[in-house]
Nucleic acid binder design. Structure first.
Lengths: 243, 243
DNA sequence: GCCGATTTGTCCGTATGTATC
DNA sequence: CGATACATACGGACAAATCGG
């Protein structure tokens, strides 16, 4: 439960926007008004607002104000800028989910793997292939490489459960940054074998490099999604600097 | 040319990271060190660093430091969190590009259009369909709805050139926020007619709602990309709050 | 295990610049 | 022009996490 002041203000404003307290297309109260209401400093209000900007709830304009641009959106399988495990996403979007392990082996990074994953050549890795089912249908194929020295006791049984829960709660690992690339690729034979693609001959592919709190790349995962359940959201802000 | 101090520091640090001055996997100089070097306040250094975090160059950890996690990446057709026009992207990635108008008409938003685009029912719109060519091959199909009252003088000729240059430089419009959703869809007959899809029967679809500085939604564009040239990048940070 | 030094995280108050109306 | 709004920048204080002795 977050206790920071900026986060309380952020949450309060977000709830007001979502519930229509502040009309869409109009300005929020000025920073000075919010300073008085929340009894805090200007920086704290501004920090809360900047998070709302990042989330696409508001946009700001110098000399004018903070404008409410909220529009309700469908829950997304991926939300940009947020790291979530498959199980967390499924729970958030209210879907029942399960995981099957296709293979679980050890390997050493050769040049091809190194070029794809970002691990150095010679690194000891686990190679893990899993499918995720939504409502009983296999919809996601995950091909992972995991640094073996970061999780030497990893077993197939653990990998079939919640890998992130294990890494975070059992090993105390802190996952910090994830660099993702989304592409669309032709379905491979493995895709066709493991997923119910129907007439689709392509998938959405999310390539993921995950770093822990030591700045160590410990996971590379390629998530191959059935087009029907894939959705990625992002809010972009045009960067403009004076002069 | 940005003149802000935080942006100069951001740029300086980014260049050092990219050129290897700071070794990958190791800590950058501490905030206090950077304060002395750049002769500025702590907040200014911290702002520069937070932008580097957003861009996936570094990650921070309380009590430890700022860790360099830079890895060179391919230039992306889309870069997350940034708004760019097709022409700007093509120039940045060094590709030659051209645009053809498929149709240019006026229409009124009915319920179907309203539900898709976010415009209110009854809004007067331009309906614009364009293809973008890269190296002479049509690779992107854009289906746009534009608020007519924001650009009453728009012509097919302008739409065939650089629409954003017109909106920004001629009309003085300031584009601020863009909400994007990425999905993968089956190719339609129009897609097949306008693009050289080959054996692919799907496309990457970027649905885009664009707001100007008045907080007004003035453009909805669906960009339908050939899978071969589609690429989307994002850096996510796991949000962790105390308690 | 404790303590102190270091480092980042949060929050405050203030001043000045710049854009808008 | 003045009033108001957000943007940038400064300096200081304390908290929390980390690490070494």
């Amino acid at each position: 439960m977050p206790r920071q002041k900026f986060h309380q203000i952020y949450t309060a404003l977000k709830e007001r926007i979502e519930s229509g307290v502040y009309p869409v297309g109009q300005l929020l109260p000025s920073e000075n008004t919010l300073i008085v209401e929340f009894d805090c400093s200007r920086n704290t209000v501004r920090r809360a607002i900047s998070e709302l900007v990042r989330d696409g709830y508001v946009q700001t304009r110098q000399g004018w104000g903070v404008c409410n641009i909220f529009q309700p959106i469908e829950p997304s399988s991926y939300t940009m800028g947020v790291i979530e495990s498959f199980r967390e996403t499924a729970r958030r979007t209210g879907q029942d989910a399960s995981t099957q392990v296709v293979w679980f082996t050890r390997c050493t990074a050769d040049r091809a793997i190194a070029a794809q994953t970002g691990f150095p050549v010679g690194m000891e890795l686990f190679s893990l292939c899993r499918t995720h089912q939504l409502h009983g249908q296999p919809m996601i194929l995950n091909l992972s490489y995991l640094r073996a020295d970061c999780m030497p006791e990893l077993t197939e049984e653990i990998a079939g459960g919640s890998l992130y829960r294990y890494l975070e709660e059992e090993l105390g690992m802190v996952i910090v940054t994830s660099k993702r690339t989304v592409t669309v690729e032709k379905a491979t034979e493995l895709d066709a074998k493991c997923l119910a693609l129907g007439e689709y001959n392509c998938l959405a592919v999310v390539s993921n490099q995950v770093y822990n709190s030591d700045g160590v790349l410990f996971e590379y995962t390629q998530s191959r999604h059935h087009p029907l359940i894939f959705r990625f959201q992002d809010n972009a802000v045009r960067r403009q600097f004076s002069r």
